[in-house]
Amino acid sequence: MTVTIAEELLLLAYSEDEGRQLISTMQLDPALAGAILAELVIAGRVELSGKKVTIKDPAPLGDDELDATLARIAEFGKDRDASWWVQRLQSGKLRGRLLSRLARAGVLNEEHGKVLGIFPTTRWPEAHPGVEADVRERVSAVLAGAEPDARTGVLIAITHAAKLDRKVFPAESRARVKEIAKGDWAANAVAQTIKAMTAAGAIAAAGAAGAISTGGGS
C-alpha cells in the first residue's frame, strides 16, 4: 500500500509489538508536520522562495492530509517561513488522524486500555508488518551506501532531527545518518524544510522546559 512520509515515520516511531511511542510528543509532532511539508515540496506543490513557503501547484494529490495542508497554505494568503508552518501544522490531532488511518488500512491495531485501571491509554501495535518492513528495507539500502531518493532521504533526516534514529537504526549507521541529515543530497527547499522542523521542535522543547521550570518554582 502507499503511505506518506509522515506515516512511514509513525511506523518507525512506535514499537512493533507493544505499539508504544518511542520518542516524546515534543519530538514526534514537529517531525510529522515537517514530513508533510517536505512531501508537498517533493511533489512540486509548494516551494520555498527564499525562506517563504509559497504555492507552486495547487492541484490536489489525492491524499486527505496532504491536500488539506496544501489548501490551508493556499488559503492563508500570507508569506510565512517553513518553521512557522511546522509550528502551526503540528498537533496531537494530526498524529491521531494518521494513526487512525493506518489502523483503518489494517497496518496497525488500535488497542484501548487503562493505566492503573484509571487513566485511558491507546496502543498501536503492528497488524501488517510488511509495510514497515518495506520502509526499513529501503532505508537499510541507503544506510549501506546507496544514493538516497528524496523520500528516503527526508525520512532518515527527520528521524535524526527528532532523535529517533538512535532508537531505530543500528549504532554503526550513525555516521551515515548524520551525513544524510546534512541534506547535501537534497534540493534546497527540502533541506530548508528539515531545518525548519528541527527548529520548531527545539522551540517546543524550550517552551515546555520553561513551563515546567515555572511550575516547579510556584
Rank of each mutant, 00 (worst) to 15 (best):
V142R: 08
I55P: 04
T2L: 08
E132W: 07
W185I: 09
A181V: 03
D79W: 07
D63T: 01
S218Y: 10
L108I: 02
D79Y: 06
A6S: 04
A196I: 00
G44M: 08
S173L: 03
A186Y: 06
L108E: 01
A43K: 15
G19P: 02
G19Y: 02
A43Y: 15
T121K: 05
D17H: 02
S49L: 15
A171T: 11
A144G: 06
S140A: 15
V142T: 01
A103P: 00
A186T: 02
A191D: 09
R176E: 10
L99K: 03
E18L: 12
L32N: 01
A211R: 13
R80Y: 14
K93I: 13
T2M: 13
L89S: 01
R151N: 05
G92S: 07
W185D: 08
P30A: 12
A162N: 12
G210R: 13
A33M: 08
G44W: 07
L66A: 01
E39T: 01
A202F: 11
R151D: 05
E39N: 06
R97H: 05
R72F: 07
P30V: 13
L28K: 04
M26S: 15
G210Y: 07
F169D: 03
A35V: 02
A103M: 00
A186D: 02
G117E: 07
R166S: 10
E65R: 03
D63W: 08
